[in-house]
Nucleic acid binder design. Structure first.
Lengths: 234, 234
DNA sequence: CCGATGTTTATTGCCTACAATTGAATATCG
DNA sequence: CGATATTCAATTGTAGGCAATAAACATCGG
């Protein structure tokens, strides 16, 4: 399948600017985030490297990078494993993500323009429309784009990077797809609250609205989790 | 100096549990954060690997990890360079750090105990004492321990990790030591405000107090920066 | 004297090979 | 038959070597 990658001209072009390690890293990250490689699954070095037509060296460098990003665990003399995020950790991440997203709201309240507000309202209308049709597969990507647009508009690249990193890690939560669950029309009202807060130009109000939106997602996540699992404690 | 590291028994013990890559990574991270390796400086693979008595393989894996952590930049066919954080990025980091630290305040307000408050007040008294003597070298580590104790007490390991990562990156800001500057007695009043907010048990108040503490550090940082540099804009 | 082009040299990117470790299958003993 | 010791295959950890790249230097023409 990937055997002759080395001789593929388009890939060679990529190698001009990006190293083999970088290519492997992106490719593996994609496999992990799409769920093709599932949490807990082991990554056999020989198998993967031959699959991509490289040696083990670059692959090992790529996995070290993924480890630092929190996408895999490396156990000495045992191998590389796709990270599985526990419920406890997922809840932790939700909180930190809420804080970072709240900051996005706070920053945006100060620099929001009519142009941005128009764009945001367009998003809201689009999501309302989709939600009415209960077409979940369409709703999710738009919802994602909406949040993406918000954090990106802050102009704070550090914030964007961190936020996306959290979203990625949540994809590794055991209950895959739970992250998306409970969304739709329920959360679009929260979205409107956020945009309204931005329009008011009130920093604290916007921060709180953004923060609480993620906190509510966390609560929905936990509910879905407890519905499937024995609630550990009273 | 480090030539016979391989034969040092204590280091071999470490290798039982931790890989050579891991040791190199920690060692390099230490060199970078202490400033022994300065921002912009290039890390010669042969030089470093012979210095530590290893081959280039594990070293390259270690640097990939450091790249993902944001401590070095790797340019293809050019080498790895200690990351230098621009003023713009430093200000960005301050904001995100403020958000995360604010979350720490919010979480702590809900689970603070008399025991923790006692410990915190002891920190405050100690810092007051040191600040009175204007002994900066003593103040800084205590200040660090205070903040460390705060974030750790939240029990949210994700938060702790992120917070420390931000503090580390700020060490790479061009104006080294600026991060520490402007502290002392000025900020200890803010520290008391934070602890008071915790004692009140008011979530939002604590969050805001924690958040603003870091924001004020950011402002002090920017002031010191502009005093040295041409203020870029009006 | 200065800029453009060719050459050298240091350094990185990648690969192959060997050593060390682990986990499991197998054998041995109570 | 069950538990423990032992061997063995699979896999990772590390080392060293060759090719490719880019920067530094020298050379040539204007």
């Amino acid at each position: 399948m990937y055997q002759q990658m080395k001789t593929d001209s388009s890939d060679l072009m990529v190698l001009r600017t990006s190293s083999l390690t970088g290519v492997l890293e992106r490719e593996l990250e994609h496999l992990i985030l799409t769920g093709e490689l599932k949490p807990g699954e082991r990554l056999n070095e020989i198998q993967i490297s031959t699959r991509f037509g490289t040696s083990r060296g670059p692959l090992r460098e790529a996995t070290r990078s993924l480890q630092a990003k929190g996408l895999v665990d490396i156990i000495r003399n045992r191998g590389v494993f796709v990270r599985s995020v526990s419920a406890k950790e997922a809840l932790e991440i939700y909180d930190v993500r809420a804080a970072v997203f709240g900051l996005a709201g706070r920053l945006l309240a100060d620099l929001v323009t009519d142009q941005i507000l128009t764009r945001l309202n367009a998003f809201l209308d689009q999501m309302d429309e989709i939600a009415a049709g209960k077409d979940f597969d369409q709703y999710y990507p738009v919802n994602l784009a909406f949040h993406d647009y918000l954090v990106t508009s802050t102009g704070n690249e550090t914030l964007v990077k961190e936020y996306k990193s959290f979203v990625n890690k949540l994809h590794l939560a055991r209950a895959r797809g739970l992250v998306q669950a409970g969304g739709l029309s329920v959360s679009n009202r929260e979205h409107r609250e956020m945009v309204d807060a931005l329009a008011s130009g009130n920093r604290e109000r916007a921060q709180e609205a953004f923060f609480r939106h993620v906190e509510r997602s966390k609560i929905r996540f936990r509910s879905t989790l407890e519905a499937l699992d024995p609630p550990v404690e009273s």
